[in-house]
Design a protein around this nucleic acid. Sequence first.
RNA 1: GCCCCGGUCGUCUAGAGGCCUAGGACGUCAGCCUUUCAAGCUGAAAACACGGAUUCGAAUUCCGUCCGGGGCACCA
Length: 477
Amino acid sequence: LARHTGGSFIVRIEDTDQARKVEGAAESILESLRWLGLDWDEGPEVGGDYGPYFQSERLDIYQPIAKKLVEEGHAYLCYCSPQRLEEMRAEQMRRKEPPRYDRRCRNFSQGERLKLEGEVSSSVVRFKTPLEEETRFCDLLRGEVIFDNSSLDDFVILKADGYPTYHLANVVDDHMMEISHILRADEWLSSTPRHILLYRALGYEPPQFAHLPMILGEDRSKLSKRHGATSLLEYREQGYLPEAMMNFLALLGWSLDDKTEIIGRDQLIEHFSLERIGVTGAIFSQEKLAWMNGTYLRQLNLDEFSEKAIPFLEKGLPASISHPLPEEYIKQILPLVQERIKTLGDLPQLTDFFFIDELSYDGELLIQKGLTKKSTLEALRVSKDRLDKLVPRIVVPPEPQDLGLMVQLEAFNTESLEGALRPLAEELGLKTGQLFGTLRVAVTGRTTAPPLFQTMAVLGRERCLKRIQAALEKLTA
RNA sequence: GCCCCGGUCGUCUAGAGGCCUAGGACGUCAGCCUUUCAAGCUGAAAACACGGAUUCGAAUUCCGUCCGGGGCACCA
């Protein structure tokens, strides 16, 4: 929305819970945004006129505001212990009542306050929610939403440790940072009346609100750790492309029209609009993401694909393979697997036979349906013999003056291999599938692999002959 | 329990009263292509939660029911 309208996209880290502080969490959020290409105009690392952008560094802004709210009668100090609150809630639940603060500290006299301050070591600041009437606001996606103030309790705005709660910090910062639009998940909708009340008490003009549909797990509940990978960075590690992830995420709750599935960043910015956001929660479909990633992967040219693929091969191939991996060889392999993968993480296991010296596989796999050990051996022997005879030739142009164009034909290429092996099947009285199947296992160690001739051409003459020999030995042993 | 928000194929969605015999995509199934696996192409099965009301006409408006989700912390 910011990019579409020419506004500013601001990143603010809301780190106001000391108890849940996790080392490196903020950095990984920023890294996720960077990975997706969601660059920000103001915030950590880039700065801006409204900093600091970490709420933990803004305590001296929130505290005086909380104090002022107390002085003006919009808030009050609460001395109730966590234990008391917990017991109270438990009792309320038992009686099937809504769990909420009973406002014991709301109407203490000055004398009672002084007495309690002497006895109690810590206190929090609570907002004095109006007891009656209702709070309404207009959600850009859902229209007018109305809450009875009587259903709200006196929520904490400043904790005992001097940190603000989300409610206070968010309202104060959105005002001070001149935020125009709050686009946040649905789960915040029921907190919004509290925020409206706070804006009002502080004399601030509230921003526009749009509560977005949530991303759900397979069981339709709020997406969480137990639903599997929930961190963007995990998807990066698995070999998803940021462009695919961005595209997929954008279509969860938003659509361009009745048919567009693949849409790039620029087009997204150009066409994005609040009006086309839906209101129902969307299940995060791994399968569709995988499909989409596949289509993005297939669009890459060889250089791009190879640049992205190499780190995954370096990491995923057996350690015994010598590193660094030869780039030219890899560039021959990659086109054979590009349309066969859904993530870059699929690469190592799909291509390892290109790198491993000694294949290990069950010799029985060599014997194709309808063949015997004997006929398989025969097929392998004859094949090896034919391939042995495929040697490089020099083609000399007929006109002497064209000698500079003399080309060397690598006889061990896709065409020559096909030219040699296809007729061979008939010669041996085999179906092509039978002969090729046997050779595929001999040369790759598996029953499914990229196209045989291309695979053999990339492996090269020596490796293929060696592997067929190994297959013969495997069957004779 | 109380409050709020929702409900179109299994999933993501199109649908702003007649264009809807409800469109697209993923997935599924079948066929084509084919040396295996993919990719690609073609086709099929598959949905308006239910009940009333308004209207000549309702997936679209209103009400109720049911179902689902979210919130109800010194978490965000």
